[in-house]
Design a protein around this nucleic acid. Sequence first.
DNA 1: CACTAGATTTTCT
DNA 2: GAAAATCTAGTGG
Length: 195
Amino acid sequence: MILNTLTRRFYARSPAVVAQGLIGKVLVRNLDTGNKLEGVIVETEAYEGFADPASHAFRGKTKRNEVMFGEAGHAYVYFTYGFHHCLNFVTQTKGNPSAVLIRAAEPTLGLDFMRQRRKTEIVTKIANGPGKLCQAFSIDLSLNGTDVTKLDSPISVRGGQREKYGVLSGRRIGIRQGVEKPWRFYSAGSIFVSR
DNA sequence: CACTAGATTTTCT
DNA sequence: GAAAATCTAGTGG
């Protein structure tokens, strides 16, 4: 079993590379209660700073997106559609505010807790979407800006087993600008992806 | 199965 | 005022 937490160097690359690299890695959530949740990341999307009209950072810095303008390896959590949180990891370096959206995961640890939070018994529906994933993993705005490269952080990512079916890419979901960019990455054959 | 409305906050026009 | 990196419950085929 590999337990290495991903370093800042991993995140300090272009978002598309990081997004692809995160597939098959394990998202780790350390709760205040001492409970631990884990899930294998099966779907991500890359958002490329100033060059990408779909990125929150495209129109400049705001109070909401300021974390994207900071150091790579931090969590960017935002609230959207009045209801849902979305989890991102900041990538690249200062001056290029890019991030990777975590869209879906396969729950592997803490299933009872997640089922309770999601109010569903169906495992494939626990984290097959960015809003659902945050609900299952108990992620909200209080975690915005969290450094995810530390082992004892509330959120971190560690290496997992190699993705056996390979990684596919396609168009991103839920956006109207820059839809032609093939910056959605997902685990081939996984039943835990959002679509 | 497809489609639609509604929840509700941040941001931009 | 309207759209947004969404989800759910409801209607109808």
